[in-house]
C-alpha cells in the first residue's frame, strides 16, 4: 500500500495525516508544537514511521505557518497555504460545503466556496484575539483543562455577556464578572459567544454565509463555540470528525494530486529527518543598506535554506551549488 503524508505545522499544534490513494485518512496525529516546529516534525514523523515504513510514503505535502521549514527538513512535494489546504479538505468530507469557518491557534479564517471552488476568503488582520491561543490562556487561568472547556460552556443555563472585541478587554471583563460571583460555566459560555460574535463581525464581515457551514481547526473541539455559532448564524454547523487535522489532510490530498503529474517523491527519508541536528540562525546581511535579516536553516553543517534576503543572493548561492535543492 502507498500513502500520502500531510503535515500541518501551526503555531499551537502540529498535525500529521496519512491518507491512502483514495484520500481516506488512515492515520491522524495531533501534537502540540510547543514552540519547536523541528522537534514536532521529528516526533510526528517517527510516530508515523513506527507503523508505516518509509518506502510506503509516496508523497508529502506541508502547510501551516511553518510549512516552508517543514518542507525543507523533510523534502516536501507540495508546500501550500492554509486556506487552500483547509478548503480542499473540507470539500473532501462535504462536497457541497459553501462556508468553512476555521479557527486555529493564531489565525482565524472564513472560506466561501461555490461548487467546490473557493470564491472568497478572509483572515483575521492585525489582531489574533479570539483564536485558540487566547482560549488556551483563559482555560489555564481558570484552571480548567482546555479539553473540558466546551463541555463547561454547554452546562450554562444563562450566559454572561463578555466583551469580545479585544482579548485584553475580554479578559478584564471575564475577571469582573468572575469577581461578582457568576458561575464559571456561564462566563465560559459568554466567552464562547463573544468570540463567535467577534469572528462574525470582523473576519466574516460582509461575507455571504450559506449552508452547509463546516467548522474546523483546533477550536472546533470546543462544543461551546459550535453552539455559539449555531445560535448566532441560525444555521446548523457541522464539525468533521477529523476537524483538528483538516489542514494536514488537505496537504496530503494536494500531495497526492501533484504526484500524479510527476514521478518520485522528494522525501529525504527518515534518517535525514530524525538523525541530523537542525538549527536555525539568522544574521544581518551587510551587502547593502537593506540589512535584511537572513535566516539560515542548517542540518549539522550543511545549509538547507536561506530565507529573508530580498535580493535573493543567499538563496541563489545555494541553488547554484546544488541544483537538487532548487524547489
Amino acid at each position: 500500500m502507498k500513502y500520502y503524508l500531510g503535515v500541518d505545522i501551526g503555531s499551537v499544534s502540529s498535525n500529521f495525516v496519512l491518507t491512502n490513494p483514495r484520500g481516506e485518512v488512515v492515520e491522524a496525529i495531533y501534537l502540540r508544537t510547543m514552540g519547536n516546529p523541528v522537534q514536532a516534525v521529528r516526533q510526528g514523523l517517527s510516530m508515523v514511521m513506527k507503523k508505516y515504513p518509509e518506502t510506503t510514503i509516496r508523497g508529502i505535502g506541508t502547510t501551516g505557518s511553518a510549512r516552508r521549514l517543514a518542507a525543507v527538513i523533510m523534502g516536501a512535494d507540495v508546500v501550500k497555504n492554509e486556506i487552500t489546504a483547509h478548503a480542499v479538505a473540507a470539500s473532501k468530507f462535504y462536497p457541497e460545503v459553501r462556508t468553512v469557518v476555521e479557527i486555529g491557534g493564531q489565525d482565524s479564517k472564513i472560506i466561501i466556496l461555490r461548487d467546490g471552488i473557493v470564491v472568497d476568503f478572509a483572515m483575521n488582520t492585525v489582531c489574533a484575539a479570539g483564536t485558540g491561543s487566547f482560549l488556551d490562556q483563559q482555560a489555564m487561568r481558570l484552571d480548567i483543562p482546555i479539553e473540558h472547556f466546551g463541555r463547561q460552556a454547554l452546562k450554562s443555563k444563562q450566559l454572561v455577556r463578555i466583551a469580545g472585541r479585544c482579548g485584553v478587554f475580554a479578559e478584564s471583563d471575564m475577571i469582573h464578572k468572575q469577581q461578582m460571583g457568576y458561575p464559571v460555566e456561564d462566563i465560559i459560555a459568554g466567552l464562547c459567544e463573544a468570540l463567535a460574535r467577534n469572528f462574525l463581525n470582523n473576519v466574516a464581515k460582509g461575507k455571504d454565509i450559506q449552508e452547509p457551514v463546516v467548522f474546523q481547526g483546533g477550536v472546533a473541539a470546543n462544543m461551546g463555540m459550535k453552539q455559539a455559532f449555531e445560535k448566532l448564524l441560525g444555521k446548523p454547523v457541522m464539525v468533521p470528525q477529523q476537524y483538528h487535522v483538516m489542514g494536514a489532510l488537505g496537504a496530503a490530498i494536494l500531495a497526492s494530486e501533484s504526484i500524479t503529474h510527476r514521478k518520485g517523491s522528494r522525501f529525504k527519508g527518515c534518517g535525514f529527518v530524525l538523525e541530523g541536528d537542525f538549527t536555525t540562525r539568522s544574521f544581518e546581511c551587510n551587502g547593502c543598506p537593506n540589512m535584511c535579516e537572513v535566516v539560515t536553516i542548517k542540518r549539522d553543517e550543511e545549509v538547507l535554506a536561506y530565507w529573508g534576503d530580498r535580493c535573493r543572493r543567499w538563496e541563489a548561492s545555494l541553488t547554484e551549488q546544488r541544483p537538487a535543492l532548487a524547489w
Binding site: N81, I83, T84, G116, V118, F121, V126
Partner: peptide, 26 residues
C-alpha cells in the same frame, strides 16, 4: 504596518492567487 515578518502577507497573497487561479480554471 511596522511588522517585518512576511509570513502573513505571503500566506494571504498565495491563497488569493490560488483562489483566483482555481476559479478561473473552473
Amino acid at each position: 504596518d511596522e511588522h517585518t515578518g512576511e509570513a502573513g502577507v505571503v500566506t494571504r497573497l498565495e491563497a488569493f492567487y490560488d483562489m483566483v487561479a482555481r476559479r478561473k480554471n473552473a
